[in-house]
């Protein structure tokens, strides 16, 4: 028998995390590139690649978080896995220079992921 979740928390955390992920990614890309460019060994191509890396991981984390959040009730286990992926990538973004906003996104995804697994489930 298939189980369905009952909590709205994954939906709220997934969507709010994703919409906040966009400015965090832009900030992270700019900060990461700037930090790299300031470093002695860095040149313009490495700075650009760090910016691209942060944008790429933020896109992956944003999409996983959004899809995970929306599927939070109908497919709780799949949604939980997607939100864990989103949490990991948002964490990488934070380490890459995403700042405090990126850390908050990471926490939102983590709360969403936990709720996906621990929420009350009903048989359908």
């Amino acid at each position: 028998m298939k189980q369905k979740g009952t909590s709205e928390v994954p939906l709220i955390m997934g969507i709010i995390g994703t919409v906040l992920n966009i400015p965090a990614a832009m900030c992270g890309a700019a900060c990461g590139a700037a930090i790299s460019a300031i470093g002695e060994a860095a040149n313009s191509s490495s700075a650009s690649s760090i910016g691209n890396y942060i944008v790429a991981i933020s896109v992956i984390s944003g999409l996983s978080g959004l899809v995970g959040g929306i599927l939070g009730k109908s497919e709780p286990n799949t949604a939980g896995i997607l939100m864990i992926i989103a949490t990991v990538f948002a964490g990488l973004e934070t380490l890459g220079g995403g700042g405090l906003l990126s850390l908050i996104v990471c926490i939102f995804y983590l709360i969403g992921a936990i709720y996906c697994f621990v929420q009350k489930k009903v048989d359908v």
Binding site: I16, V19, I22, L100, L101
Partner: peptide
């Protein structure tokens, strides 16, 4: 606190939740 939350993004998020 120390964090500036972009209002547009938060409202887009709210619109998606209410829309869904």
């Amino acid at each position: 606190g120390d964090i500036d939350f972009p209002a547009y993004n938060l409202l887009v998020g709210l619109s998606l939740i209410i829309g869904f």
